[in-house]
């Protein structure tokens, strides 16, 4: 049983780490602000979610009680990430940041 739990924890940890890395890679690689916004809002949130799931599985097993504490952080991140992304997008449109020329459509005037 121990080994199964260890494997599950390890897999969650690795998935989380890889997604967080991809999110930050997006932040560095993508060419304009609106594109960069996509990496952190999705990938990083899931990355942290994975790590927290690992902690939940591990502590629930090592203490023999269901340890749902951690879910609160994930829940909070899932509620707050879209809100901060929306606010930052509004701020960027207000400042009329440049976006890539082949972007179709136009941002609204703020």
């Amino acid at each position: 049983m121990d080994i199964v739990i260890e494997y599950i924890t390890a897999i969650f940890l690795l998935i989380g780490g890889v997604f967080a890395l991809i999110g930050s890679l997006g932040l560095v690689r993508l060419p304009d602000f609106f594109l960069r916004l996509h990496g952190p809002t999705k990938a990083t949130t899931l990355g942290v979610g994975g790590t927290i799931m690992a902690s939940l599985v591990y502590f629930s097993w090592s203490e023999h009680t269901l340890h749902l504490h951690e879910i609160l952080i994930t829940l909070f991140l899932f509620i707050s990430a879209p809100v901060s992304a929306h606010m930052l997008a509004k701020a960027a449109m207000h400042r009329e940041l440049k976006y890539r020329e082949d972007t179709r459509g136009k941002p609204w005037k703020q």
Partner: peptide, 9 residues
């Protein structure tokens, strides 16, 4: 949160 889209305004 879902497929490649961010609500902006």
């Amino acid at each position: 949160l879902t497929p490649g889209t961010v609500s902006a305004d």
